[in-house]
Simulated assay, not measured.
Amino acid sequence: MAYDTTQDYINHHLTNAAMCSTENGIAFNKACADAGFWQWNVDTLAWSIGLGLLFIFIFRRVAKKATTGVPGKTQAFVEMVFEFVDDNVKSSFHGKSKLIAPLALTIFVWVLLMNLMDLVPVDLLPWIAGLIGQHAFGMDPADVYMKVVPTTSLNVTFALSIGVFVLIIFYSLKTKGVVGFTKELTLQPLPHWSMIPFNFVIELVTLLARPLSLSLRLFGNLYASELIFILIATIGFFQLPVHFVWAAFHLLILPLQAFIFMMLTIVYLSMATEEH
């Protein structure tokens, strides 16, 4: 696929495959620009759901076939990940809940799988999508979009963080009750009735900053990473050495971002279950 300018190339790779509803029916991509607020980024949905199902399939398959003898490579890897997450939950979560460990495992593996899509060559999957659109649907490849890293979308990172935020509120109310949670928001850090407005503003900002920081941290790191991979791809034939160096660096960064998201989730939920 030929692009007129480098900017066109970058914009194409950073554009989602969008679907929306209009007065004339279902519209796609450019036709969604003026359709209003609601649209579905079908590539983000497909890759995030698909990777989530892949996680469930692998771990369920390993659990059903697990043996007590010498484990195979896949079982050993799954057990290593499970023990890693379990150790971090035990050391960081001070309450009692059967949900936290499975939640932490799901967040870590799912976010990691979505992050790892950043290592796929940036032109490969969009090129395949363009061929499918051209030969199966008669579309111009320039009008076929495919953004393959779900965590470079604010929709995904905010959805994850909002889910965590709902659990924070749930555990806060469950542990402290409505009265206790209200006191936590209004009587600290300055425990005097005259400081209630000041305390409430400070604590509300702190509470809302948790999901905001969770989502923006993950999004910012992955979006910047994807953009750098795209810029490297514009070099042409000489991109390979630079690409491999940047990819090798990401073998540390991508798991680290999944780990940070998981750990902050555990810490925030642990704070929500502390009665004091």
Rank of each mutant, 00 (worst) to 15 (best):
S153L: 10
N155M: 15
I162R: 02
L167Q: 00
I168G: 02
S153K: 09
S172F: 01
T157R: 11
G177E: 15
T175V: 10
G180N: 14
S153N: 11
G180D: 15
G177V: 12
I162K: 06
T182I: 09
T152I: 13
L160E: 00
G163T: 12
F158R: 04
T152L: 06
V166E: 00
L154P: 06
K174R: 14
L173Q: 13
S161E: 00
F158C: 00
V156Y: 06
T175R: 13
Y171T: 05
I162Y: 02
S161M: 11
K183Y: 13
L154E: 04
V178E: 14
V179N: 14
Y171N: 04
V178W: 15
K174F: 03
A159G: 07
F165N: 01
G177I: 14
K183Q: 13
L173A: 01
F170H: 09
G163V: 13
A159C: 10
V178R: 15
T157G: 02
I168Y: 09
T152F: 06
T182H: 13
A159H: 09
K174P: 00
V164Q: 03
A159V: 12
F165L: 08
T152K: 05
S153H: 12
F181K: 05
Y171S: 03
T157Q: 06
F181H: 14
S161A: 12
G163S: 06
I162G: 00
N155P: 05
T175S: 09
T182C: 06
F170M: 07
F181L: 05
V179R: 15
K176M: 03
V179H: 14
F170P: 02
T157W: 06
S153C: 09
T152H: 07
G180P: 12
L173F: 14
F170Y: 12
I169S: 03
L167K: 03
V179I: 14
V164T: 06
S161I: 11
I168V: 15
S161P: 07
V166F: 00
F158P: 01
T182M: 11
Y171P: 02
V179S: 15
G177Y: 14
N155H: 14
F165P: 00
A159S: 11
S172C: 07
T175N: 10
S172L: 12
K183T: 07
I169C: 04
F158E: 01
G177Q: 13
S161V: 10
T157V: 11
K176E: 07
F165T: 07
V156H: 05
T157Y: 08
K183I: 02
S172Y: 07
L167C: 01
F181N: 13
I169Y: 03
K183N: 10
S161L: 04
A159D: 07
I168E: 08
V166G: 02
V178D: 13
F165E: 00
V156A: 03
K174Q: 12
